[in-house]
């Protein structure tokens, strides 16, 4: 999986009604890596993230041209969207556990995809919670409501929930922006562990976060990818003047 491209995006345009939110995006996302999307608010980074698992389908008036391929398969060409989202999991900006027990939250995905046996569900739940580094904190309260957990725990629960369906890619839309620094630290640590098994794309407002966790970074501005390079390279020797201005804090 490593070094092989997982997503291939070709001349992608995206419109919300008459507004063009993404302009001819061309990029390849590498497997087994963490890719960070950075840029100021409204630059299209979250929008691009959501085209990868077609969450934009839910937005009324959203129109897309161009192609997105997941391991060679056209995401917008007749692929079953539920299957796509099983392969490409998502973690949202605000922790959004369902109002059910911790166990049922994790089991929701597997149950959706037809797992019914108690023993199979039990082991998926435990494995996912372990992989999301939250098992020790919740193993005695699996039947308790997930909403009673702290914000940071809720977000790791949501990561576990996404892992439970066995995705190949994890999309994360500013997963730590609603969390305190300690919870953020835990999640970043977790990301580095998860990189061993999953390809991760993370949208972040926080440039330090991008340098801490990502292998590659894409800088977005006004719906375009200005620069896309190895994270070290981009933050030490940005090629584009606009990238330099942004990462040195001159705007944004």
């Amino acid at each position: 999986m490593k070094d092989k491209s997982i997503f291939e995006i070709k001349s992608l345009d995206l419109f919300y009604g008459n507004f063009q939110a993404l302009k001819s995006i061309n990029m390849e996302l590498a497997g087994g890596e963490i890719t960070a999307f950075i840029g100021p608010s409204g630059c299209g980074k979250s929008t691009l993230l959501k085209t990868l698992n077609r969450m934009n389908d839910l937005v009324e008036g959203c129109r897309i041209t161009g192609t997105v391929r997941l391991m060679g398969q056209d995401v917008y060409g007749g692929m079953d969207v539920n299957l796509l989202r099983r392969r490409v999991g998502m973690v949202f900006q605000k922790p959004n556990p369902f109002p059910m027990s911790v166990y049922d939250n994790i089991a929701f995905g597997p149950r959706t995809h037809g797992v019914k046996k108690k023993s199979a569900l039990d082991s998926v739940v435990e494995k996912s919670l372990r992989d999301a580094a939250i098992w020790d904190e919740v193993k005695d309260r699996l039947k308790k409501p997930a909403l009673a957990l702290s914000g940071g725990q809720q977000q790791r629960l949501c990561i576990a929930r996404a892992l439970a369906v066995g995705p190949e890619v994890l999309l994360m839309d500013e997963p730590t922006s609603a969390l305190d620094p300690i919870s953020t630290g835990k999640i970043e640590e977790l990301l580095l562990q998860l990189r061993e098994e999953y390809s991760i794309v993370i949208v972040t407002h926080n440039m330090q976060q991008a340098t801490r966790v990502s292998d590659r970074t894409a800088f977005f501005l006004l719906g375009e990818v200005v620069e896309y390079a190895k994270t070290e390279t981009m933050f030490s020797m940005p090629k584009d003047k606009r990238t330099e201005d942004y990462i040195t804090g001159r705007f944004g």
Binding site: N82, R85, F108, G109, C158
Partner: peptide, 15 residues
């Protein structure tokens, strides 16, 4: 019901 619940369910591949 918050839309985030709906997003969460769709994001896991639920119909």
């Amino acid at each position: 019901v918050p839309d985030t619940y709906r997003e969460g369910a769709f994001g896991l591949g639920a119909g």
